[in-house]
Design a protein around this nucleic acid. Structure first.
Lengths: 183, 183
DNA sequence: TAGTCATTTCAGAAATTTCTGAAATGTAAG
DNA sequence: CTTACATTTCAGAAATTTCTGAAATGACTA
């Protein structure tokens, strides 16, 4: 499969960004290719479009599957596996955020709690710092858990609302009655 | 400088997580060490606490400085450079988010806009996908820009509020009058 | 200005990650 | 069961990143 110039450039960009996003070039390219392809692709097609080895494609797809970033499809009468990305971009964002949290945040939160469980270390500053960090992460993951529950429609409204949200909170620390009354 | 067991474990954890966070082990360890140390440290102390080479410390500190994650301090009568992390964790979070956005999001947004500028590519699906992705990223960075403006106090209130925020948006798409009236 | 110490640079070594080709495994159809 | 693919695994090769020691640079002071 020959790529259009647009596809080509898009794929190469994702490959280059890969390392900043914590995935390797090939994985970035495979994802990009699936993302801008209207139809599901099989491993052979990917291999040939990206000019990589078949085994590299296999490993890349495995990695993307471990991130829940691709969906497996089957074409009747063809026993090869076909892959796509979800049509809904918000679904992709949710997956990405959730997986990154799982890999980049949760292990640290666990470790911080473990460190606190080990009891007084005779190092007040470090202990305070660990506790403070743990509390901050808990606040942020707690907020994330709430946002995760929202339907996409409300999430979008919320984001579009922007800083007008801030007006809801008065500086003294209370909130407007409409908020405390609801739910 | 000998590390306490707490410091030791904290530092090692950050080193291991480094690769997932897009920094290398040493950089993660240096940052962690500065973070849990009550006093600013100089390069010599870091080198010796982490058992790495002096040049590695130098490069690691340079990297952390490029991320704006450390502050340079000077001790009177001592011409060596001393480094710390900000006391305020929210300041750290703001820096981290802003730098990650700069490195991981902005280049892609630029590239997507470039691709769109290149005009019709004769590939409707890919074009639509690029436009959709660009719009999504613009919405999210726009929201981020608004949140960035908020004082920490309000940001914390907002996060603690959690999903009660969702109650503000009715399902039909409007918002409560209190919101539209303010500001 | 010469001497001392702090820091940076950089070429090559070491470690790690990524990629490939070949072999092994899995799987459906005849 | 055998054949015909499709996919995965894996050992080593290739590429990239990280780290080191030595030399260069910078900057203060006596």
């Amino acid at each position: 499969m020959a790529l259009t110039p647009l596809q080509q450039e898009f794929v190469l960009h994702f490959g280059e960004m890969g390392s900043r996003w914590g995935i390797n070039r090939t994985v970035g390219q495979i994802y990009a290719l699936l993302f801008i392809s209207s139809e599901p692709l099989n491993a052979e097609t990917i291999t040939d479009a990206l000019a990589i080895s078949r085994s590299n494609t296999s490993m890349g797809l495995k990695e993307l599957q471990s991130w829940n970033l691709v969906r497996l499809k089957h074409v009747p009468g063809d026993r090869r596996d076909y892959f796509t990305t979800p049509d809904d971009l918000w679904e992709i964002v949710r997956t990405l955020v959730s997986e990154r949290k799982k890999r980049e945040i949760d292990p640290t939160l666990t470790k911080l709690r473990e460190l606190e469980m080990q009891g007084p270390a005779g190092d007040d500053y470090a202990e305070a710092r660990v506790a403070e960090l743990r509390e901050l992460i808990e606040m942020m993951t707690g907020f994330y858990a709430e946002m995760e529950k929202l339907e996409t429609e409300r999430l979008v409204k919320l984001m579009t609302l922007g800083s007008r949200i801030a007006g809801l909170i008065d500086k003294t620390g209370g909130m407007f009655p409409v908020l405390t009354k609801r739910k």
